[in-house]
Amino acid sequence: MNSVTIGEELAALRHRYPGCFVVAFADLSTGMVLAVSTLEKTAQEKLDALGRTAQSCLLGQGASAVAQVLGAGARNSPTMALQAGAHDIRCFLRAPAPAVEALCLVLTPEADLDRLLPDATEALLRLTVEA
């Protein structure tokens, strides 16, 4: 799959959910956003911050401790992190090992998580398998 197809997959996911305004595909080992689909123009600094947050939530020191508590073991990490601030929700989904990619979504607080999360998980699997 080339980068355009990744972009199409990200855009398709974003379009299915009106409350979703950023969908990014990130490399957790570096915290770098590899591809993104956004509702409106988004500064690169914000995307960089999103990638770093994904890395921290899914691979950082806190994530490692959380993984142990959730029974994943210190060498693994949680498969999902949801982070809500006062104005938005950030969702980070980690691809199954050995892949090190993750899907990062920025959502409105009204987003339908019950529908979106399984859909986004399937999209991530398609992306990582073909990548």
């Binding site: 959730l70 498969t79 999902m80 809500a84 980690r94």
Partner: peptide, 20 residues
């Protein structure tokens, strides 16, 4: 046991982890 590993968040936030 995990509290010391969690970075303090300056603003109000809620974080959920799942997996394992």
């Amino acid at each position: 046991s995990i509290l010391p590993s969690l970075l303090p968040d300056p603003g109000p936030s809620v974080t959920l982890w799942h997996g394992g």
